[in-house]
Design a protein around this nucleic acid. Structure first.
Length: 921
DNA sequence: GAAGTCACG
DNA sequence: GACGTACGTGACTTCG
């Protein structure tokens, strides 16, 4: 299995401190010592370390400092840096503090006598690149820009800007490879690099571009037109060559500390606290306290249980906020503390339609409020309670929700985000306790609802919604609930969310779930919210027409079925159908269900139909049409949102244990396609005028991943060559390829991924278990690796209790060691499948996260992502954009695993377009 | 609300 | 020899 690409951050500590000194105010610490630069340095380092495991963030980090003023460059040129003025008096004492600060973060501080920081950085950079790592040099130094190449960039933390080749070309006119030549020609007065007199950046870059390099410039000098420039180039050629050597970075020295030792572990608590207290950095201490509560104490790698926050729940302490002044106070506290849990209350479960009724905030355990916005009277006679006008409250809320220095915490934020987005409230940055819980505990015996998590982690039983609003027909809308009860319920949710976050967030890093959370699931939340808001257009007329056609067909079939049975009965009732088949008609029943009744499922009916029982075929036909009508043509018409005229599904981010999404209300991930009648339903999913639907799907992604993860040479080669994988399997297993053997091979390919038994395979292929076993043996023989993958997966699952995907997503299997054989074997089959299905889910999720930014960057802002169906993405776009968008979509999907995971097989993506979803396939 | 069935990947 | 017989979902109908 591949592991994520390490990303080494090399901080140019010396460079930073000089810039910080000049750019920051002259702060002093509690003892009156100057610490402006140290303060700036500390916050900068903290911000970097916080990015641990984020997209493009560090996995490894080191701070590089200058050890002494004399280096080998002074041996080359005694005037090197000779004119540099001494460091300002109030900066000198800050140098050792920089080392203290670095140590406080448990980050290695590297300095080598005789080498400048730039050289050490170059050595580490080259070594890391050679090892296949990504490198970011935290510096804005022009000398270090020489290092830029694929896989390495610079980061200027003063303005949070990434510096790549484009920047160098823009600034110096040449690519990073030629930057050294330009720097040599132009010289540097600060470092006292002589260069060539009269040549500045402009001339230097012009000359290098013209001649292609420093030596070429010097060689061409005598042929240049007479003048000062020509003379200087000739007279100072040696100085230019010396300068070239002075700016050349040394990159071949032995590393003082091996790369692996630079592993970044997170923000440590104790040493950092000591450092901050020593200087009295109060705002940073506040931040530490907050992240100690919520963030990972990363020095502890042992999964010790967190002390339970013993602030008891006091539902009557929650405040009901009905004045702007009070609301402002809560918002101010939230802003100062930097963390706020939020929950919205609405009148429904469909976020694209529900009305906002109020919201609750929590800033610390037990410290929560409810802000009612649209509560009516509790009955017809009573008056509306006084509330802040919605527009006013939202105007106050908006800046807090968008404040980049305040973390917003919610449980299933996707819902609240959608509600708030409809009021132009943007939420960022955020954490989502539902998504965190799923990243930690997928597959465990509890679901990830707030109520269950509160019980599980806080031992607290939440007020049930039905306790507040009742249930069934008499259920009240939340806006009818008296404010006192509404406050208890709503503020409790925010309080619980905050406490859950404190319990769960630190576990992410301890349990190695940060990558999946930060780089796959969390960034997906706003993407899914946007997709849900887009919805998809359906042709309700066409559905209506299909419904009546199906009704007609069903009626005809029903009559025939009743005649064949000899009496009327409910064809849709398996119980009654069973009685007709197995008692009245006295047919031989096969399998029996839990209740002891004979099964009447499609497999049984097919068997009977094959034996020439006419009623069986009729019932099969009737069932198919009944299913299509009730689940799709009838239901979908009802699901059209009157405001948008489109159908908006809801995706569950925690629905499937393997990491897949699931879709509900309506489920748009099971729209028919396999039968002719079914396909007609897909044709009712259409694009707006002037637009088309584009469907892009991964071809055979799970088999490809199996080939990679189990390391099966024959399969990997076949995918690399673009061969038909089922034909290959057919050839290997049966020695010939025809329709029949290819079909059987396809069944076997899938069966293996699901951990099928010989009985199961025998049943599917219509052969005996022994024959099936022989076929499985042959498969393992022909595709070595699969067997080992299965054995290893089961072994580690038994050992650790969970499986992992290539991206580190865990699925827990609590019954993998069950003494109940059926339970155990079921878990084993699921465990064999989970890494493959889960990796596939990770990959398409990453593609989704990157898709809209990639399209926007390509100048295609009008492409909208509408649906995800496990290995397929559906877009709606202007017809004119199809060609350009296809390229971007293909590219993003095909490269979605990189750079976190390098696959040894290509990811195939097939794209189709059409006026309808049916036509796009 | 459970059981049975079946739509999808 | 019993266990039950392919992984992951959601929606609908019937029926107690």
């Amino acid at each position: 299995m591949s592991t994520p690409t390490p990303h080494l951050y090399l901080v140019d500590g010396s460079g930073y401190i000089f810039r910080a000194y000049h750019r920051l105010p002259p702060l002093t610490n509690i003892r009156g010592e100057p610490v402006g630069a140290v303060y700036g340095y500390t916050t900068m380092l903290w911000k970097l370390a916080e990015q641990l495991n984020r997209e493009d963030g560090p996995t490894h980090m080191a701070v590089i400092l200058d050890a002494s003023s004399k280096t080998f460059r002074n041996d080359m040129y005694d005037k090197y840096k000779a004119h540099r003025p001494p460091a300002p008096e109030d900066l000198v004492p800050q140098f050792p503090m920089i080392r203290d600060a670095t140590r406080a973060f448990s980050i290695p501080c590297i300095e080598t006598v005789g080498l400048e920081a730039d050289d050490i950085i170059a050595c580490y950079a080259k070594a890391a690149l050679a090892a296949g790592w990504a490198v970011t040099v935290v510096s804005a130094d022009k000398d270090l820009m020489q290092l830029i190449e694929p896989g390495l960039d610079l980061l200027d933390t003063m303005n949070n800007r990434r510096i790549g080749p484009d920047y160098v070309i823009e600034k110096f006119g040449v690519a990073p490879e030629l930057l050294g030549d330009v720097l040599a020609l132009m010289g540097d007065s600060a470092d006292n690099i002589p260069g060539v007199p009269g040549v500045g950046p402009k001339t230097a870059s012009k000359l290098i571009i013209e001649h292609g390099g420093l030596e070429a410039v010097l060689a061409a000098a005598p042929t240049m037109k007479l003048g000062k420039l020509r003379d200087n180039l000739i007279d100072h050629a040696d100085n230019a060559r010396l300068s070239r050597e002075l700016v050349r970075l040394v990159c071949d020295r032995e590393l003082p500390e091996p790369l692996e030792d630079l592993l970044l572990k997170g923000i440590p608590d104790a040493p950092l606290r000591e450092f901050l207290e020593h200087h009295g950095f109060r705002s940073l201490l506040t931040k530490l306290n907050a992240s100690a509560a919520g963030g990972p104490p990363a020095t502890e790698t042992v999964a010790t249980p967190q002390p339970v926050d013993d602030t008891p729940f006091d539902l009557d302490a929650y405040e009901c906020v009905t004045t702007v002044e009070k609301l402002d106070q809560w918002i101010e506290v939230a802003t100062l503390s930097g963390f706020v849990a939020i929950d919205t209350e609405t009148d429904g479960l469909d976020a694209t339609q529900a009305k906002l009724i109020g919201f609750s905030l929590c800033v610390a355990p037990g410290l929560a409020c409810y802000v009612p916005l649209a509560h009516g009277g509790t009955d017809l006679l009573s008056e509306k309670p006084p509330q802040i006008p919605m527009a006013v409250a939202l105007d106050r809320l908006r800046p807090l929700m968008a404040d980049p220095s305040v973390l917003k915490i919610a449980h299933n934020l996707k819902y609240d985000m959608t509600i708030l987005a409809r009021h132009d409230v943007v939420v960022a940055p955020f954490d989502d306790t539902l998504v965190i819980s799923f990243a930690l505990d997928a597959g465990r015996q509890f679901n990830h609802s707030m109520d269950e998590l509160a019980l599980q982690h806080l031992g607290h039983k939440c007020i049930a919604f039905t306790d507040v609003c009742g249930k069934g027909k008499a259920q009240l809308c939340f806006d009818q609930v008296p404010l006192r009860d509404a406050t208890r319920y709503a503020a409790e949710d925010a309080d619980v969310t905050f406490r859950l976050w404190k319990r769960l967030k630190p576990r992410l890093s301890r349990e190695e779930a940060t990558t999946v959370y930060e780089r796959v699931d969390r960034p997906l939340v706003p993407v899914i919210a946007a997709m849900e808001r887009e919805g998809v257009k359906v042709d309700a007329e066409q559905l209506r027409a299909l419904s009546s056609e199906f009704a007609y067909q069903m009626a005809a079939l029903e009559t025939e079925i009743h005649e064949l049975a000899g009496h009327k009965f409910a064809v849709g009732s398996p119980k009654q159908l069973g009685e007709v088949l197995f008692e009245k008609l006295d047919l031989k029943g096969g399998r029996k269900g839990k209740a002891g009744a004979h099964s009447t499922d499609a497999a049984e009916l097919e068997r009977l139909a094959g034996q020439g029982v006419p009623i069986a075929r009729k019932v099969l036909d009737w069932r198919q049409i009944a299913k299509l009508k009730s689940t799709y043509t009838d239901a979908l018409q009802q699901q059209v949102n009157p405001e948008t005229g489109r159908v908006h599904t809801s995706y569950s981010l925690s629905g499937a244990q393997t990491g897949r999404l699931s879709s509900n209300d309506p489920n748009l991930q099971n729209i028919p396609i396999r039968t002719e009648n079914g396909r007609r339903i897909r044709e009712a999913f259409i694009a707006e005028t002037g637009n088309v639907l584009l469907s892009a799907d991964y071809s055979q992604i799970e088999l490809r991943l199996a080939a990679h993860m189990a390391d099966v040479p024959a399969l990997k080669n076949a995918f690399a060559n673009g061969d038909d994988i089922h034909s290959l399997t057919a050839m290997e297993l049966f020695g010939e390829v025809n329709r029949d053997t290819r079909g059987r091979a396809k069944t076997i390919n899938f069966s293996i991924l699901y951990g099928i038994s010989r009985w199961g395979l025998g049943g599917r292929l219509g052969i005996t278990a022994d024959e099936a076993q022989a076929m499985i043996d042959r498969y393992f023989e022909r595709f070595p690796g699969i067997n080992r993958y299965i054995a290893e997966t089961l072994e580690t699952t038994r050992e650790r209790g969970f499986t992992t995907t290539l991206f580190g997503r865990k699925t827990h299997f609590t019954r993998i060691k069950s003494s109940n054989q059926a339970e155990r074997q079921g878990s084993e089959r699921a465990a064999i499948n989970a890494p493959i299905q889960g990796t596939s889910a990770d990959i398409i999720k990453r593609a989704m996260v990157r898709m809209l930014p990639a399209l926007a960057k390509a100048g295609l802002p009008n492409v909208r992502m509408l649906l995800q169906v496990h290995d397929e993405l559906v877009f709606e776009l202007p017809e004119a954009d199809v060609e350009a968008a296809s390229i971007v979509i293909h590219d993003v999907m095909a490269n979605a695993a990189a750079p976190l995971v390098e696959l040894s097989i290509p990811l195939g993506v097939e794209i189709g377009t059409g006026k309808s979803w049916g036509a796009a396939h």
